[in-house]
């Protein structure tokens, strides 16, 4: 009886810790996934799966830490790769993507915000033209402001290789943005 009570208390505590972790990381992970996938609703699915995996597989204490953060980003990346593979297998994927994109890209407000929306659209399009690995590094470095060391922990790449890929990605992004007239 007492063992069962203890188990229930432990489960309740773990659930509370888990909720705190969700609140701590959800915004950053949603932003990261949305930029990788270019699709907010897919990003939500991917992040949701990452949190379920965290609860089931994370063996240590559920407390915010560099290790836990790197683990979450890695899972989101893997889930995003799976999502992209699954989507590319579907025959109507391209059409749906265009439709979703049209909805997401539609200027929501007229006037002054229009140019900000256009810039965002140009940047999103440019990012989508990069290979996934390059896009991932640009998002982690430029938007999430992670250090090379943190990126290395998330991606499993050496810091030297991170620098190398990022260099080429930024060069390519500059070219794309220049071509579209955003720069």
């Amino acid at each position: 009886m007492q063992d069962k009570l203890k188990a229930n208390v432990a489960k309740h505590e773990r659930l509370e810790q888990f909720n705190a972790i969700v609140s701590e990381y959800e915004a950053a992970l949603l932003r990261y996934a949305a930029r990788l996938l270019g699709n907010s609703s897919a990003a939500e699915d991917v992040v949701q799966e990452a949190f379920i995996k965290l609860y089931r597989r994370w063996e240590g204490t559920l407390e915010p830490s560099a290790g836990l953060s790197a683990w979450l980003y890695r899972v989101v990346h893997n889930q995003a790769v799976d999502y992209i593979k699954k989507e590319s297998r579907r025959s109507d994927a391209h059409q749906r993507h265009i439709e979703e994109h049209a909805v997401m890209s539609a200027p929501s407000r007229p006037g002054a915000n229009r140019s900000a929306d256009e810039t965002r659209l140009n940047v999103r399009d440019a990012l989508e033209k990069l290979p996934l690995r390059e896009r991932e590094l640009v998002v982690l470095k430029i938007f999430e402001n992670k250090s090379y060391k943190e990126i290395s922990e998330i991606t499993g790449l050496t810091t030297g290789y991170v620098g190398n890929i990022l260099h080429h990605a930024m060069k390519r992004l500059t070219e794309i943005l220049k071509d579209t007239g955003a720069l």
Partner: peptide
């Protein structure tokens, strides 16, 4: 980006 969700639904 205001279109990006800040929290899970």
């Amino acid at each position: 980006d205001p279109e990006e969700p800040q929290r899970l639904s």
